[in-house]
């Protein structure tokens, strides 16, 4: 099934107001805030602008265009979709250290209502603290990958539109939480900020399980995910080839992201040691 025109490839396969609202809303707030920061003499930099919007754009692309159809009917494209939702998209968005711009971009009324509410909401804060707890965050990160790849769970997620949405949103939100924990740019004194050593441990801990499940899929000699055999693949390809590419996508680029993150963290760590008085990217 293919769109009638080239333009139609960019149209949502299934229209989800939540995705549109999330992506367009964040982009608008960020651009507005980024410009405002520049006007007030605290520019966030072009690299940050490009990084944040690229990450967000990629998230939109895999959730709200023809890629979404391909992801529903081809295992390895589904793996690519999750690589963007769980790794690449949030990675780029949070590497850009977007909080200052996002804060500045929020309409004043919304900011005055939202931020105090978030600060007061105890259950939400507790949940946040739990999810970001250093013993929990890497397990949640890896656990979600494993959970949605259990053959029975995967079958249901690919057949049920609701479960499919739940799956993709859980990956995106967990990706944002995880990479925020890793790229937290607040000063060392900030409450709840994890030290660089701890972050490097976390980001390296998630590598072996991802290699394990990626290799398991890439090297399996039988088809593990029957739902694509039932509903049809987007184009003719043997199930094993599909699964092998999917395994490699889960195995290699995901681990690479951890390595890149480690190098970035090391660099930041050294910077912080050299100039402890001027921590990088302070949130006002």
């Amino acid at each position: 099934m293919q769109p009638a025109s080239a333009w139609a490839y960019l149209l949502p396969w299934d229209f989800y107001p939540t995705v549109l609202l999330f992506c367009a809303g964040l982009a608008l707030i960020y651009i507005r805030g980024w410009r405002r920061c520049r006007e007030t003499g605290q520019p966030a930099g072009y690299a940050a602008l490009v990084g944040f919007l690229t990450g967000l754009g990629l998230v939109y692309l895999v959730m709200h265009t023809y890629v979404d159809y391909l992801a529903q009917h081809m295992f390895w494209i589904h793996r690519l979709q999750h690589l963007v939702l769980h790794h690449l998209g949030p990675f780029l968005m949070l590497l850009a250290d977007p909080w200052k711009a996002l804060r500045a971009g929020l309409p004043v009324r919304a900011r005055d209502l939202l931020l105090p509410w978030l600060a007061r909401n105890r259950p939400l804060r507790l949940l946040y603290r739990l999810l970001q707890y250093p013993l929990v965050a890497p397990r949640l990160f890896v656990g979600l990958i494993y959970f949605w790849l259990l053959p029975e769970v995967h079958f249901g997620a690919m057949l049920s539109a609701t479960r499919y949405q739940l799956m993709n949103w859980s990956m995106l939100l967990d990706g944002l939480l995880f990479w925020w924990l890793i790229f937290d740019s607040r000063p060392a004194s900030a409450v709840g900020r994890l030290g660089y050593g701890g972050r490097i441990v976390i980001v390296s801990l998630v590598v072996p399980p991802q290699i394990l499940i990626g290799a398991h899929m890439a090297l399996a000699t039988e088809s593990l995910y029957s739902v694509y055999n039932v509903c049809g693949r987007a184009w003719p390809i043997s199930p094993l080839t599909d699964q092998q590419i999917g395994g490699l996508v889960t195995w290699i680029p995901s681990s690479m992201m951890s390595v890149i993150a480690m190098l970035i963290l090391l660099r930041r760590w050294m910077h912080e040691r050299e100039s402890p008085a001027l921590p990088r990217g302070t949130v006002a």
Binding site: Y228, N229, V230, C231, G232, R233, P236, I237, S238, P239, D242
Partner: peptide, 8 residues
């Protein structure tokens, strides 16, 4: 061939 989930 039914191997890719599509009857062909």
């Amino acid at each position: 061939l039914a191997q890719s989930g599509m009857a062909r």
